[in-house]
Write a protein that binds this DNA or RNA. Sequence first.
DNA 1: GGTCTGACCGGCG
DNA 2: ACGCCGGCCAGAC
Length: 113
Amino acid sequence: MAKKEKAYNFFNDVYDVVRLIPKGRATSYGAIATYLGTKMSARMVGWAMNAAHNDKTIPAHRVVNRNGQLTGRFHFKTPTTMQYRLEREGLKVKNDTIVDFSKIFWDPYLELE
DNA sequence: GGTCTGACCGGCG
DNA sequence: ACGCCGGCCAGAC
C-alpha cells in the first residue's frame, strides 16, 4: 500500500512540475527527473506522462527529450498535435525538433530552486 | 509470477 | 563521431 502511494506521489510530482511550465517554454524529461531527485529515472517521467493522458490539465506537449525532439508526438491524438500546440505558443518546431531549444528551455531546478 | 518494454539519459567502445 | 549498452521504476502480457 505504502509503496504504491509513494509511486503515486512520484507521478503526482511530475504532473505538478509539468503544470508549472510557463507558456512558450519547454523542458526535458531528464530535467524533471533531476529536479525530483531521481535523475536516473528519466524514463519514469515519460511513463508518468503516458498516464498523464488521463489528466488534460497537464501540458505534456511542453515536455520533450534532451534534444528538444518531440519524441512523444505519437502519443497524442494526432502526431501533429504536439507540434501544433507548441507553435501556437510561439515556439518554432522543425523536423519534430524545437528550434533553439536551449533558449526556451525551462529548467525547474533553476526556476523553482 | 517472471519477463519485457517504455514519451530517457549518460557513459563507453 | 557514431552506436551500443546498462540503469532506473512501473505497468502490461
